[in-house]
Amino acid sequence: MQPFRRLDASAAPIGMPNVDTDQIIPARFLWRKRSDGFGHLLFHDLRFGDGGAPKPDFVLNRDVYRNARILVAGRNFGCGSSREHAVWALYDYGIRAVVAPSFGDIFFNNSFQNGLLPVALPAERVAALRALLEQSPGSSIAIDLEAQTLTGPDRAVDRFEIDPFRKECLLAGADDISFTLGYRDRIAEFENACEAKVRWL
């Protein structure tokens, strides 16, 4: 996993609430392997028409947003299924952070596993950021994970909260599994104690 430290990049607004994982990547693409890549399938049915031609009015198809690395979204972004493909599609497309008032819980967890930073800010500030991006399309947002700050196109700085453990892993680009395997003995000890008590499992 690539570490995440700082990001200063162009951002795209996606205002609708409840953008679910079926919209981020439709179920018919899920059989593919991780190594196949999912970036070209991101928002597939919102992004492409029936013949496969890009829909001109979809935000990521507009030239100014083509290099967006940040999405500024509506409430409950990533609700729905547990498919990690939703995160893979965003990441493979080039998105490194999503800013929203709230996220689907599983999507939120999945993001950290792949170096994608979800930033939750108050709904009013997120709406204001989207308005700024619509007024001056192509403008940038700067995120500093170490300092836990997000600087908008208006230069206003917001502090965001993040779980310290998730932050540490993102900064290091570290992976949970190797970290947890370091606790092998603790796990075995716990397991044995449990099995002595709950024999029927």
Partner: peptide
């Protein structure tokens, strides 16, 4: 509760 693919691996 439901988990993602990386968590399934974990």
């Amino acid at each position: 509760f439901g988990i993602g693919a990386s968590e399934v691996g974990h």
